[in-house]
Simulated assay, not measured.
Amino acid sequence: MTDEIPIGGICDPRFAPVREAFIGNFRERGEPGGAVALMVDGRLVCDLWGGFRDAARESPWARETLVNFFSVGKAFTALVALRLVERGLLDLDAPAATRWPEFAAAGKERVTLRHILSHQAGLPAIREDLPDGAMFDWPRMTAALAAQKPWWEPGAAHGYHVNTFGYLAGELVRRASGRTLGHILRDEVAGPLGADVYIGLPQTEHSRCAEFLWPSILPERPPGELPDDALMKWNTYWNPPGISGAGWVNSPEWRMAEIPSTNGHGTARGVARIYAALANGGAIDGIEILSSAMLAEATTEQSFGPDRILDRESRFALGFQLPQAERRLGPNDAAFGHFGAGGSLGFCDPAARVAFAYVTNDMGPRWQNPRNKALLAAIYESVG
């Protein structure tokens, strides 16, 4: 207990600045509840949790508390797809319609998995108005995407596929393997590594979940007919209305569904464990989750520049975010990972042999989050 903030876990004395930054998040930066984990050279040197898992502040965060980490899961979505590329079940540069024939409609016959994983497919939003709850209907969502005309010429620009990314990659995974992306993640990556990470959370695990503190009221759609660009951006986040999680994020339906872009759940320790394997060339403790050659391609820049959705620059490899001047992942350019709404973050820095995760139950600042920035600074203060 630190000044009435419940803090638990372990931290190697060398990494005391990380602990101090974590405590500072509660004292100075409004953190309600969360956890951090840091692994160096494959060893867990910091595993901390603190605050409360509920809005009433009655239930302290515990070692095994799970929380929705939103877009942190995009990297794990890509990881599963890339494992199938290694097996020859998917091809980065073959038309997606080779595995998903219906997808060739409306000018998408040349869209590839590479386009999808690097946010260049031109499919960040569905134009057809869908009712709230449709995001739980996988066939309906994937059929709508298969019928959708790209909002821009695939490969000619990029824009963050906030919520469609997981359906697009996930349907290719399903068509190629006969299994869902979430099941492959558990059976072939998280399970073997002992990483407490899920896309599609079994109901037996719901009692461990933190309440995510996000208003349940959906925003009102601007009146009148929207210009095409504005419609694309609105529908990216709000078609169907609850696709980003608003109004649903704490429900059993949301937790159990597989919405790979958005509704991954886990502990910080679990996220860091996966990144520890990636920091080590794709394998740890004799468990390979991706070959070193595939990992090298997966972390090579694919798109960088003005983002059609975010209205700022963004930089992507194959499913991983790469450092850019205004959003660094420490001092080393070889770092890669993925941020999530609220400031959650999973990343690794192979040059420093670092793997890190931060999870939270608060929808704090997204693009520039003072909590994860303080933690990042503390990591590199510690490792020197």
Rank of each mutant, 00 (worst) to 15 (best):
M1V: 14
I5H: 02
P17W: 04
V18D: 07
E31L: 13
E31A: 12
G34A: 00
G34H: 08
V36W: 01
G42K: 01
C46G: 01
C46H: 01
G51L: 04
R57M: 15
R57E: 15
A62Q: 15
L66G: 04
F69E: 03
F70R: 06
A78L: 07
E86V: 02
L90R: 05
D93Q: 14
P95R: 03
P95D: 04
P95E: 02
T98S: 14
A104F: 09
A106H: 07
V111A: 02
R114Q: 10
S118I: 08
Q120F: 00
Q120H: 02
A121Q: 05
G122D: 04
G122L: 00
D129Q: 12
D129H: 12
F136T: 09
F136Y: 13
M141Y: 03
A143I: 00
A144S: 11
N163A: 14
N163K: 08
L168P: 01
L168W: 10
S177P: 10
T180L: 09
T180S: 15
L185Q: 02
R186N: 07
G191H: 06
G191Y: 03
G194V: 15
D196P: 12
I199E: 05
Q203V: 13
H206C: 10
S207L: 15
C209K: 13
E211H: 13
F212G: 11
L213K: 01
W214R: 15
L218A: 14
L218D: 09
R221E: 12
E225W: 14
W234A: 07
T236D: 01
N239P: 07
I243R: 10
S244I: 15
W248M: 15
W254T: 10
E258G: 07
S261P: 11
A268H: 03
R269E: 13
I274H: 01
A276H: 04
L278N: 04
A283P: 04
A283M: 06
I284T: 01
M294G: 09
M294I: 10
E297W: 09
E301R: 09
E301H: 02
Q302K: 08
S303N: 00
S303D: 08
S303Y: 02
R308K: 15
R315C: 11
F320D: 05
P331L: 06
D333G: 15
G340F: 09
G340E: 05
L345I: 10
G346D: 00
V354E: 05
A355W: 00
V359C: 07
V359S: 01
D362C: 11
D362T: 14
G364A: 14
R366T: 13
R366P: 00
R371D: 00
A374W: 06
L375S: 03
Y380R: 10
